[in-house]
Amino acid sequence: MNPFGTLLLRDLKLAARSGGGAALALSFFALVATLVPLGVGADLKLLARVAGGILWVAAVLSALLSLDRLFQGDFEDGSLEVIALSPLALEMTALAKIMAHWLSTGLPLTLLSPVLALLFNLDVAPTVTLFLSLLIGTPAVSAVGAIGASLTLSLKRGGLILPLIILPLLAPAVIFGAGAVRLVLDGMGSGSALGLLAAFSFGAVLLSPFAAAASVRLNLGG
């Protein structure tokens, strides 16, 4: 197998074998979705109205939980040095880690979202849009998150500063993602919103490996 696939597969294996893998993020996602009706009341009309936004925010926060370990584990146990000296460029290393994070977090969250949409009284059409928007948009969360994770990888309490750094940068994903659902609820097409979301996601996945690699390189110098 080529180095890229090797690293991707190993990271997936590690995610599956440590701390219940995606289960943690999924539970958190479901929990936030459960707390919202408890907070705002069980008005089904209102819940359907806010479902897109709430579930998008909840998904971003859930994906955030495991992000700070993206490079940190490999940094602390010395694996990152070995990987850095391997034939795999650090940019590709970052991309592999972004993909592994998405496959082990973003994708499961997306798959769970229709169930939660049901609890929020969301109709079929907006539910499909929510599903699509998460499918398109969560890679951006992993990608932008990778930048934050690489910048804070030498910090003992990087998990605290990471959200502060990346949440403002993820505003477009939440806006376009939840906006797509909103458009469908208002009886309009969601194509424009999904298109913008895809563009944002594509740009993030394309560019963030460079920023992440630069900051990993910087941290290896210490």
């Binding site: 930048i147 403002p168 940068l169 505003a171 477009p172 806006i175 376009f176 906006g179 913008l196 944002f200 740009g203 560019l207 963030s208 920023a211």
Partner: peptide, 15 residues
């Protein structure tokens, strides 16, 4: 990274 993203954020908020 912020410099690249801020115009996008601005655009998305306008949208």
């Amino acid at each position: 990274v912020g410099a690249v993203n801020i115009p996008i954020i601005k655009y998305s908020v306008d949208w």
